[in-house]
Amino acid sequence: MIQFSEVTKRYPGGHEALSSATFSIEQGELVFLTGHSGAGKSTLLKLIAAIERPTSGVVSVNGQNVGRLPQRAIPYLRRNIGLVFQDHKLLFDRNVMENVVLPLDIAGFDRRESLKRARAVIDKVGLLNREKANPISLSGGEQQRLCIARALVSRPALLLADEPTGNLDPGYAADIMSMFRDFHQVGTTLVIATHDERAITALGGRTLHLDHGRIAEATT
């Protein structure tokens, strides 16, 4: 599903975040990205979602060369990818429901159908009783679950999560990780950048370790 071949990303100023990375991820796999902060985990996820373009090498997702994708095709690529951010990137001028339904509005779904789907996914992350709440009134863990709900509402085949449990108490973190395990079990491909060693041992799966932009496969 995802292939990196000899991918290098150098930021303006010369910092090389990723150096000749080559690996592939199959459909339905659960992959953890580990490594110290600044090792290139976020950059790798951004390259998959075409938020950044590689300096050299080929990033391909579903057979599409993402690095060479024209600007106007990028939105359609992103609609098939669910993104979970460490800082949630929620919109505080609307309630929980409106946040979750946003990707469906963007894709032009029928509003009633959208609301139904949004309600189902809000239920799945356990926020149904907070549907009308403003996200600012939610706890960190709830905000992260809301972010996950928004990433999942369009039923993407691929979910990218950047430090999804980074700011959370261990209890919440375990919650979120078990949620990810459920998605993995229904066939979603997951790539999760994390420090959380416990989660990795709990969920199993493959680990890609990054060290100063260089990739090393590790099995736990």
Partner: peptide
Amino acid sequence: RDEILVSRLIGATD
């Protein structure tokens, strides 16, 4: 700004 940036990230066309 925030809404525009987030919308872009989740697949909104210009």
